[in-house]
């Protein structure tokens, strides 16, 4: 009791190391937000009246293209992240209901597929199928296995956590354990895994559009503009979309890294 009031005998806890990746993730988020705002405001750039892509100057045209690229990437990332997380949760559920063998097989499929060059499916789909939503679904599928593998790793680490045993020792029924302990601790790692889909789908879509097999021309895309400018040999038209694409990719990767790093600190 009273003995414990004296200063602790062991060394004080070391000062918390700066959270690596946090600043990077924050700047990535800021850059991406600025890009999204600039793209959204692009049609108003020339004294308030709407600008059309074909007759605009190269920077405004690139910003107009960004609307297509970014909104498609967001849609596909949400789909891909959701699919991947759903995959991981399904594996976990199968593990509970049908035994660890089914779980291992489900997630081994994700691990194998994460190693395949799935990004090649996107230009294939772009050339073969029409609707944008179908293209978004295919793009999402290319990112889902990697998300599923990571989310499942987080899930199985958490399922083995000692504090769940402690909660069961406190007599909490499984439903309560799930509600009070598992879900609050699971949200952040799963979202962090889902963010991994963003840079992947952005890269996959740009790659397909670069080949001319991505988004329809009406929507506009950085990849398509870069490809067109390269074919025409026009450096002035080439530089803005290429730079903006590089910036957006860096920002997306930085966000994913930052979220992962924040997740790993314990």
């Amino acid at each position: 009791m009273a003995e414990y009031d004296q200063p602790p005998l062991s060394h004080p806890l070391p000062p918390e190391p700066p959270r690596a990746g946090f600043a990077r993730g924050l700047s990535g988020a800021a850059v991406l937000a600025a890009l999204a705002l600039a793209c959204a405001a692009a049609p108003l750039m020339a004294d308030g009246s709407a600008v059309h892509r074909l007759d605009a100057d190269p920077v405004a045209a690139a910003l107009l293209d960004g609307r297509g690229s970014l909104s498609f990437a967001l849609l596909a990332a949400v789909l891909g992240g959701g699919l991947g997380i759903g995959w991981a949760l399904l594996a976990g559920l199968l593990g509970t209901l049908a035994g660890s063998r089914a779980e291992r097989r489900t997630i081994a499929a994700a691990h194998r597929m994460a190693g395949w060059p799935l990004a090649l499916l996107v230009p294939l789909a772009g050339g073969l199928v029409g609707p944008v939503w179908l293209l978004a679904l295919v793009t999402a599928l290319t990112a889902a296995p990697a998300v599923a593998a990571l989310a499942h790793a987080e899930l199985s680490t958490l399922m083995r956590a000692e504090f769940l045993t402690a909660a069961r020792a406190a007599g909490l029924p499984e439903g309560e354990v799930l509600r009070r302990h598992l879900i609050p601790n699971l949200t952040r790692p799963l979202l962090a895994a889902g963010v991994l889909a963003l840079p992947r789908v952005l890269a996959a879509e740009s790659f397909a559009s670069l080949l001319g097999l991505g988004l329809p021309p009406a929507l506009g895309s950085w990849g398509a503009s870069v490809g067109l400018a390269a074919r025409l040999g026009d450096p002035v038209a080439f530089a803005p979309p290429a730079l903006l694409l590089a910036l957006a990719l860096w920002a997306a990767c930085a966000i994913a890294d930052g979220v992962q790093a924040g997740q790993r600190k314990s």
Partner: peptide, 22 residues
């Protein structure tokens, strides 16, 4: 079972990880 849980309580080898971080 809950009555038994009340009477039998564990101490864990790694106490820090036996608390919910959230």
């Amino acid at each position: 079972l809950r009555r038994a849980r009340r009477d039998l309580q564990p101490l864990f080898p790694d106490p820090a990880s036996s608390f919910d971080p959230a």
